[in-house]
Structure formats: C-alpha cells, structure tokens
C-alpha cells in the first residue's frame, strides 16, 4: 500500500514539474527580444469552457498478467485497443464518460520454448468521471481538476495449454478519487494541450467468478442455470489497488478539433484465494471531434 501511494505521488509530481518547466520556458522565451523578424501571430487555443468532444481512439500497447489461478508465471505481450469517450467541459466542471477495450496476446516470461501456454486477455474499462476545476491559472493556461470517478474493469483471460483450456475473469466496479492537470501551450507555432490524469478507486465490489478454472458442466439444463460460482465482495483499495494513469498531448486542428497522442497505464492487484496482478500499457491516437 505504501509503495503504491509513493508511486502515485512521484508520478503526479513528475507530471506537474514537466508542465511547469514548459510554462517557464515559454514565458522565458517570450520575455527576451531576439526576434529579427516579427514573431508569428499567436495561436489562439479555444477556451475550454462549454465545449463537448466525442473522442475515438485506436492504438496498440502491451499487457502483463500474473494470475495464480492460471499459472505462477508472469505473462506479457503485445495488444491492441480501441476506445470511445464523451467529454464535456463546462465553466468549472469536467465530465467524461468513456470505455476502452484492449486485447492482449501474452506469452510466458520464461519463453515459449519452455512453455506451450499462452494467455489471450481482453480487458474492458468503462468509467464515468465528474470533476471540478480547483486551479485555473490563466496566465500560464494551467488548470487542475479534482473530483470523483466510477470505474469498472472486466478482464477475461483464456490460457491455452495442453488438454483443456482454462479461463479466469475478474470483474470490478469501484468509486474513488480523480485528479487531472491540463496545460495549454504553443510549440512550433502550433497550439497544444497536455494533460495527465490519475484515477484512484477507493471502494468497490470485486467478483472473481470461479475459484477453479474448470469449464462448467454443459448440461441441457441445470438447477442453477447461471452456474453462480461467483462471490461479490466489498473491497477497499487496500484489498484491490487500482491505478489508472492517463496522459495526453493534443494538437489543435481546425475548427476546435484535436488530434491527440495518448499514453495510458493501469494496474490492478487482487487476492481472493489466488493472487492476481495485471498491468496494461497503451499508446493511442485519438480524434477529438468538437460538437
């Protein structure tokens, strides 16, 4: 727990430092008059207030899974993702409704020459976030939002091995804290917006539907048709730490639309008989359509 909190604080401080450095650099360059020719006209970033975006993104990434229900080995490998988001800025609020889906094809860290098994994992991450602007430094175009988020994770893993294949899945729904830092700046005469956000669910419910990884009996009908072998548990961040860290560099196109390069990382760890740990990296390109 302490490791996780330390990690979060370090990451957040790093992000803010980078953005502050950029701000200082911009103002420093503006205060010196080295120009021989007149400077290009300043690029005007549209005001963030009262703008709504529909965001679609595509990309690739990687995944790491260590799921003791399937294997003691660590699995890692490449993946692909897509996602969509509705994002609305009001004067002082930030609203986001988003869902990502990422599929990973993972191989054991000891190599396929020693292990024939692989894991195909699909992770779905819906979220609903509402945050309020708590810092608005107009001079440096820096904004900080803080608020709450409701997040879900559904992670289905299929391990292919000799004989039967084994499946395991995790389902989580939680509510928690959300922080986002945004900064507008110009570079090469173009308008950019950088942002970092961190979601930290604090309380939730987790469900690991099956203790064993047995394929359920496919009877014509069974007395409990859903085969409920699951157990929903209330969990706190101590029992189910989740970190969701997202960074974006947005380049303004015409008409207030943006093209963005994103980097996301999330991690979760859960112990319910078996320890399950999973991390995901993703780099994606997104189109932000203003409407």
């Amino acid at each position: 727990m302490r490791r996780i909190l330390t990690f979060c604080v370090c990451v957040s401080v790093c992000c803010i430092r980078v953005q502050t450095a950029q701000a200082q650099d911009s103002s420093a360059s503006a205060s010196h008059s080295y120009f021989i020719t007149p400077p290009p006209p300043p690029v005007v970033m549209p005001p963030v207030g009262n703008a709504s975006y529909l965001i679609t993104r595509f990309g690739g990434g990687s995944g790491v899974v260590q799921d003791a229900a399937l294997s003691p080995l660590r699995y890692l490998g490449p993946g692909a993702l897509t996602g969509t988001e509705y994002r609305a800025y009001q004067e002082t609020t930030f609203l986001s409704i988003a869902a990502d889906i990422q599929g990973n094809f993972l191989s054991p860290s000891i190599g396929n020459d020693l292990s024939p098994a692989q894991i195909v994992g699909v992770q779905v991450l819906p979220s609903l976030t509402l945050a309020f602007r708590v810092v608005n430094e107009e001079a440096s175009a820096l904004r900080v939002y803080a608020g709450g988020t409701a997040q879900g994770i559904t992670h289905i893993k299929l391990q292919t091995a000799y004989g039967n294949s084994a499946t395991a899945s995790d389902v989580y729904f939680g509510v928690g804290a959300f922080g986002r830092v945004e900064k507008d700046f110009s570079l090469f005469g173009q308008a950019f917006r950088a942002s970092s956000q961190l979601s930290l669910p604090l309380l939730g419910a987790a469900n690991r539907p099956s203790y064993s990884t047995t394929v359920r009996y496919p009877a014509t009908a069974i007395s409990n048709p859903l085969g409920i072998l699951s157990e929903v548990r209330g969990v706190s961040i101590a029992a189910f730490p989740i970190l969701d860290f997202r960074n974006s560099l947005e380049f303004m196109l015409g008409s207030g639309n943006f093209l963005a390069l994103n980097y996301d990382w999330n991690f979760y760890s859960y112990t319910h008989f078996n320890k399950v740990q999973s991390a995901r990296h993703a780099i994606s390109v997104a189109f932000l359509f203003k409407f």
């Binding site: 003691p72 000891i110 091995a161």
Partner: peptide, 14 residues
C-alpha cells in the same frame, strides 16, 4: 472435471 495448471518451469499439469 479436470482443471489445468502450470509450473514455474513451464510444464503443465492437470
């Protein structure tokens, strides 16, 4: 019904 597992050295068993 058999369930499958793996060992740290990569061998599988059920």
């Amino acid at each position: 019904l058999p369930i499958d597992f793996q060992l740290p050295n990569g061998w599988t068993y059920r």
